[in-house]
Nucleic acid binder design. Sequence first.
DNA 1: AGGAATATGAGAACGATTCTCATCAGGTCA
DNA 2: TGACCTGATGAGAATCGTTCTCATATTCCT
Lengths: 158, 158
Amino acid sequence: MSDTSPFKSSAQAARAVEDRTQEMQAVLRKQGVRMTKQRAKLVELLSQAEDHPDANELHARAREAGAGVSLATVYRTLSLLEEGGVIHRHAFEGGGSRFEAADMPHHDHIIDLDTGDVVEFHSEKIEHLQAQIAAELGYDVVHHRLELYCRKAGSDKS
Amino acid sequence: MSDTSPFKSSAQAARAVEDRTQEMQAVLRKQGVRMTKQRAKLVELLSQAEDHPDANELHARAREAGAGVSLATVYRTLSLLEEGGVIHRHAFEGGGSRFEAADMPHHDHIIDLDTGDVVEFHSEKIEHLQAQIAAELGYDVVHHRLELYCRKAGSDKS
DNA sequence: AGGAATATGAGAACGATTCTCATCAGGTCA
DNA sequence: TGACCTGATGAGAATCGTTCTCATATTCCT
């Protein structure tokens, strides 16, 4: 499998994942969330995921990892983690919600219509324009959703 | 200075509902779409709607108008009209898809988190930035989704 | 360890949407 | 205009993602 990780060595990467997992669990414990085996496993899976898995995918990964977690618990835990603010939920077009750890800078998404790949990007200019527009209409932006559904440049699909 | 230009639904209201209905039906006929009673009624309901009704709401409105249309047909027709480009489908957070006639300039949405109200806006600057960002990453934007979930400025919730 | 509060698993229930299929209605052609 | 062929409709079953129910199993506090 190709490795798009920004880390130089797998040892370093493992360490980082460990840190992220610990960090997420710490935040949750601070909120009084009981850290059960299945929650710990899901937190770990999410902290090491480099894509945007959905509930079913996480269910499968947990099973593969030898730690059985029921689909019901996967859903319950995802909602819990979202409430706790340690993961983000995305409802892209088609299919169900997809998730990602929340411990990285805010960003929006480009979804490849042909492959389903998700690319992240961020534009301070767009963020600023959004706030400005909302303000002109008398609103404060609580959160937003910006998704660009794209095709690779040049792939003529008409 | 801002290129924001929100539309007032009253601007479109000036235009006769019948004209919009005829226009939409004409476009569809041109595409070889059979104009059945049910489809005609749904096109009419959509052309006169000033909000963003969902399938169930349209089903109810058709019933109230004395023209019974099954829910299955409502869904089939909505997909048909969307393919024909005469309506747009929006999947806002929570609940199902909501629709609106497509015969007005492209725009994005602000959703009031407290009231559910939807305000339309458009920013050429943002559109341009989106295309630019996608291009830099090797993509062409096919369509996008920009929604600002807001609260009235100053309404200190919590 | 002892226990109260809480989490889990399995499957039923749910809401939105799509599909199946027997019947019905547009639009065309003679 | 009337018969026809194709495509459309209605009613309900089926699907899909997600949530809920409830009996049982765990966690975490003391």
